[in-house]
Each structure stands twice: as structure tokens, then as C-alpha cells.
Design a protein around this nucleic acid. Structure first.
Lengths: 209, 209, 209, 209
DNA sequence: GCCTAACCGAGACGGTACGTCGGGTCTTGGG
DNA sequence: CCCAAGACCCGACGTACCGTCTCGGTTAGGC
């Protein structure tokens, strides 16, 4: 590895403590006040930094929030091989629901998805750094199933991905925001069951043939 | 119902021309500049009205836009009985895609969905006046299928609705915004085909049993 | 007077109370903190107005201060005819010194003259609305003396004006700022005496001839 | 005097090239952009130095400018004995006008005088290092005249000094800034003639008595 | 045929946050 | 110990919109 990506620039180094203080402040303010209450001035004030330090490193406050999400909730969702497409799907959906239905995480994700619609610049960033990665994770499952031979014939992983993420996001975006405490957790898991059932059972006709 | 809903108030009547000018201006500004470029002052200026006239009749600019959507695109999607769940689904999905992939309509819908995430007040309004109506329309199809007896056994209309709307919205929200001209129209229809196939074919095993 | 200078514009009228509150606040802040401590934000905060209201009516904070000077100290200095150039000069100088050596007024005048050097835009305004008016006042005295016949032969009112205002301003600008209490008041009046003596006595050689 | 004034401090010596680069940059920026365009960051950038190097050696940018004035224009004005108060005055005024009406020098002097009003710290410095020196130079002339016996009886050198410097500074500060090219040079010299005439002729009545 | 209530346009108002600029300090690596 | 570079905290800038509040003027019932 002879290549040095950072050619030893002169001058003071970026402050890691400021970085994490900013991300934490952004996360907290979003959870407490929602996106309209998230202001660059507020982040700077709570983080004890100058506004310029925020503008120097992030193009918009939505980008701050995206970094904060990566810092806060480790979005990586395990991809262990459970031996079957159904079992892999189950784990993927369960963990996604657990993560996405956490009120704080959910609020931030709703906010990010909303902002991605409104700000094209950030939209591209969000799609690349979040949505695409999640989709890539799903593709690991699907291609594993294809190799294993238990991916339903006559269907494409592309559709399955869209159905899975569509269900997840629609649940997040179309449902009323959780009032305060953890509301019904049963329903989403029933949905996951039904979806898995649909996506895996539908291969039977082919097998019968 | 002899009672008059509007108790014949005295004074000048609401100006219909101002109302439509405001809705048109809001629509155009959103399409041209996106939501950040949609300001109450801008709407008033383009519509040639005072700001107060907007604040008098709508609680927020997102509500203006929601009214504008109702004015502009007739969102009603036909629900003719085509004799089978598959055919009904086909028409529903086709018309939804045609409507939702129109760049102007799509931009406004993305904006409204985004705003619904950010502003809880408007979120409730959007869910009631838009999402719930679309879901009700789908339920007509589903219950028709149930009565007709060709709704797949072992599944619930609730899941189907979520899969249908999840797919539609995910396509709208997760895709990059259309650059300018009408981009690929083929893909969405292939998706619709595959979804219909999945939702209708999966009943066969049951029938076989 | 058929001409109407203000053609009855529509919309809300300018608030007189905001105007005076702004001018008062600007005056006080300058006296208390000096020009570097005079900020538009500070004026707005103390006056209880929005910043925009200041920017709407004045091009810079120096212009606010110039208006405040006109409001606060009535800069008009009496020009009664005292029968001779010497007596008129005496009153003019006395009143000018009394006004200009008032610590508050002096601080503001130093500030305005300084700002006029730094900001060409305001410099033009200050010269027209302040310096030129003071010079015009002096010219009334001088031309009265010329008509009366007791203006010293062989000299021009232009030089006298420059000497008078030069002395006044040099005293204000070159002297250290008054620390706190009223410092020596005797010296300036002695200067005035000597200047009057010089400007009026110098006509004697001519008279002798 | 074996003692070394600078106690041979250890470490790297002050860079003379940085010093002159900073002074030159400050002068140029003031002439080009005026005082508002003179920033420490700008000086450092043009001089190719760090900001810290400026803060290390000068308390404010006005002090930099004062040093730059000393470097640039040799402000010393000759004090040769011309045999009479009138002739000495003439040379003093002529050279002062020549220097002060040079557009670049004038702009810097206006700026320094302005800054001296606004910043008390620098004001003290400017009065000591600039105004007081000029006044001392004038006093050499005056005391020479007193010794020689041709200083006008019944007047004080203090008044003459104030009139001379008052006229000079008022001309600089109250006149509109020169647009670009050298404007009327005749008028100031006529003023100088008239002032000399006034200050020297006025002694005749006394002599007659 | 006036009243009078509600509408309308215009636009000034008190605010909040924006994104930028510059000040003055601190940190890094090199001379 | 000096120096260039540059990140840091901070405060003010001037702008953009917000949502509210007068203004004068317009439109209709209802007396």
C-alpha cells in the first residue's frame, strides 16, 4: 500500500471531538424537535462549536443527520446464512423492523427520506449511501438463494427487493408517527410472516410441475 | 337535511379567481423550483394576491399543494369490474403508474409525502385525504375479489394493499428524480406484471389441495 | 400646493414609533459602547424591532446615526444678527464649541466623520446633509458682514470658513477622547477668542491706509 | 554602551521579508479597496504569510497601516531655515499639501484618522506617533520665528498650529474623495497663500503702534 | 340606498434562521 | 523560537420568509 491518500497537508487537523459532538447534537435535536426544529445554529449551540465548522464539512444539515445515523445506529444488518431463503428473509425483515420501528431511528429515517425528496443534491447522496447499501445487502441474500437453488423460479430478485423495501418504507412513511411510547409491535411481525409466506410459498406450483 | 351548511354569512364572498390562481401558482412553483422554492410570498406574488388571502384559507403551503393536486390531476382512478382480481389489479396498477410517473405529478406527490413526514399536522391531513382514499379504492377491488371468490386463500387484502402501495411509493421515492424528459416507462409495467403474477398465481397451490 | 409628494401608496404605513426607537437606541449604543459596539442587531434588540426594519429605511448604520443626531441634538445654531462680524463669529464659535464638546455629541460626531472617510457612500451623504449645512450657516454670517461692510478687506469668506471649521474639527478629532467627566472647558473658549481676534483685527491695516 | 538592546534571544529571528511584505500588502489593499476591504486575512494572503505573524507583531491592522505609511512615504518634511516665518510657513504648507493631496497617501491618512476616532487604543498611538510629531515639527518653525523676532506679537504659536493643521485636515477630511486622477491642485495652494498672508500680515498694526 | 361585515391587494412589522465573512486563538509540521 | 497553513469558536453581517398586523378599497346581502 504505497499510495498515501492524504498527502500530509499542513495546518491544524480536523477535530474528532467536534465531529462527534455535532453528530450527536443533530441526532438529539431531530428526535426531540423534529426536522423543522433542527437548525444549524441549534446544532452548533448544543455541540459547542461554530457554525462554520458544520458548513466546512457537510453540505447540508440532512447530510449531518445521515452521518449521525451511521454513527448512532449501526445500520449493518447481519447476513448470516440460515440455510434457506425463508430463514434469511425472516432475519432480514425482523431486524429491519426492529431497527426501523425504534421511534428515534424511525423519526430520523422518515426525515432523511423526506429530505431526499425535497433536496435533489441530498437525494442522490441518500440513495447512494443508504438505499443502495440496503439493497446490496438484500442482494446477498437473494443471490445466495439462487446459488442454493431455493429461490423461487419464475421470479426475479429485483421484484422481491422492491416488495420487501416497499413494505418496510410504506409502513414507516404511511403510518401515523408513534405518539410517544412503543406502540403495537405485533402487527409488523405478522406482516413479515405473511410476506415471507408469499415470497417463498409461491415457488410450489413450479415444483409441483 | 334542511339545514344549510353555510349559514348565509353576510359580507363579500370568497373570490374563486383568487383561489384557483393560488392553486395554479403553487403547482407551477413546485414543479419549476421544487419545494424549497415554494414560498407563500412567491405564491402570492405569482397569483397576484395578498399573503393574508392564503393564510386565511389554508393552514400551510403543503395544504395548498394538496388542494392543487386535487384541482390539477383528477386523482380518481377508475374501478370498473373487469371480472377477475388479476384484471382489476392490472388496471389499478397501470393507471397508478401512468399517473405517478408523470413528472409533474410525481414531483408534487414526492413533495407531499415528504412534507407529511416533516409536519405532523399536515401528515394527518395527507393520510386522511390522500393515502386513506387510495387505500379505500384498493379495498373495493379486494372485497370484490373476495365476494367473487377469486381472492387467494390464506392471504389478507391488507397485505396485498401494502405490497401494492409499497411498490408504487418505493418506486417513486427511491428512484432518482426524472431529469427532464420522460424516461424509461417499460420497467414499471414489467414490475406491475410480475407483481400481479405473484399476487394471483400464489393461490394455485391452495386450489390444488 | 396642488402637488402631492406622496401618491397615497397602498399598504401599511411606516411606524413612527419604530423609527424613533431605532434612532434612540442607535444614539445610546454609540455613546455607551462606541462605534465598534454599535451593531444592527444590537440596535434592533434594544429598539424592539426587526433588523429588516432598519435595513428597509437606512442604507447603513452610520446613516441611522446621522438621523439620530438630527433627532437628538437640534444642530441648528442661531444666526441672530449681533451687529458685527466679530459678535456673530463669537456666537457661532461659542455655540459650536458648546455643542461639539458635549461628550455624547462629540463622540457621535467623531464617529460620523470617521465613517464618512471609510464609507464613500455615507461620506457623500454626510457632506451634503451635515458639513454643507454647517458651511451654509457660516456663509450667512459672512455675507451679512460683507453687506454690512465690516468683512475684512483682502480676504475671502471661503478661507474664514475653512479656518473656523478646521479649528473646530481639529480640536474634536486630534484631541484625546474625554475620559469621563467634563474636562477643561476654558481652553477652547480662549482659542475662540484668539481666532476672532485674528479674523477681525486683521482689517485694521487697510483702514489705516 | 556595551549593553545590547536586544538581549540576544534564542530561536529563529524575525523575518524582515515577511515584515515588508505585510506592510506593502496592507498599503496596497487600503489604496485599492479602502479600509473595509483591508482584512487581516487579506493581508496575510497577499503577503504570503500566516495570520499569526501579523498578530504577533502588531496589535491591530490600523497599526500595520501606520507602519506602512512610515515605510512608504517618508513623512519627514524639511525644516530648513528660510529666513522668515512667512517663508518657513510657505514651505511647510506646500510640502504638506503635496504630500497630503497625493491620492494614495491621502486615502491612507483619512483611514488612519478615521480609525483613530473609532479605536481609542489606536487613537492614542496615532496621536503620539503621527499628530504629535507633525505638531513638534511646526513648533520648530514657530520657535525659530519667536527667536528671530518675526513671530506676530499678541498671538500664540499654539493657535497658529491649530489653524495650520485644522486647515490641512479639514481639506482632507471634508472634501469628497478624489475620483481617480489628480484633481484641481491650484485651489489648495491659493488657500496656503491666503493663510500665510493672514498669519504674517496681522502683525503690522502692532508694529505701527 | 345606504349600512356593515367580510373580503381583497399591498406592504410594513417583529422574528428566526440562513449561509458567509472576518476576527482572534490554537495546533500542526517544518526551518 | 519563528513561520505558513489552516481548523477552531465566535459574533455580526445582510437576506429570505415566516406569520401577523394595519391600511385603503371593493363587494355584496340586509335593513
Amino acid at each position: 500500500m504505497p499510495s498515501v491518500p492524504e498527502p500530509v497537508r499542513p495546518g491544524r487537523k480536523r477535530s474528532e471531538s467536534s465531529r462527534t459532538a455535532i453528530l450527536t447534537a443533530a441526532w438529539e435535536l431531530t428526535v426531540e424537535l423534529g426536522y423543522p426544529g433542527l437548525t444549524v445554529e441549534g446544532i452548533a449551540a448544543r455541540a459547542g462549536t461554530g457554525k462554520q465548522t458544520i458548513y466546512r464539512w457537510w453540505p447540508s444539515k440532512a447530510d449531518v443527520l445521515l452521518d449521525a445515523l451511521a454513527l448512532k445506529a449501526d445500520v449493518q444488518i447481519g447476513l448470516d446464512d440460515h440455510g434457506s431463503y425463508a430463514a434469511d428473509l425472516r432475519q432480514f425483515l425482523d431486524r429491519s423492523f426492529v431497527l426501523g420501528l425504534n421511534p428515534s431511528v424511525m423519526r430520523v429515517m422518515r426525515t432523511l427520506m423526506a429530505q431526499a425528496q425535497i433536496d435533489p443534491e441530498f437525494g442522490a447522496c441518500f440513495r447512494e449511501q443508504f438505499l443502495a447499501r440496503r439493497r446490496a445487502a438484500f442482494e446477498v441474500l437473494a443471490s445466495r438463494a439462487v446459488e442454493r437453488g431455493d429461490f423461487p423460479a419464475g421470479r426475479s430478485p429485483a421484484l422481491d427487493a422492491r416488495l420487501v423495501f416497499g413494505l418496510l418504507w410504506y409502513e414507516v412513511l404511511a403510518a401515523p408517527p408513534p405518539l410517544d411510547s412503543g406502540s403495537a409491535d405485533a402487527a409488523p411481525h405478522a406482516l413479515a410472516d405473511a410476506l415471507i409466506d408469499l415470497l417463498t410459498r409461491s415457488l410450489t406450483p413450479e415444483e409441483l410441475a
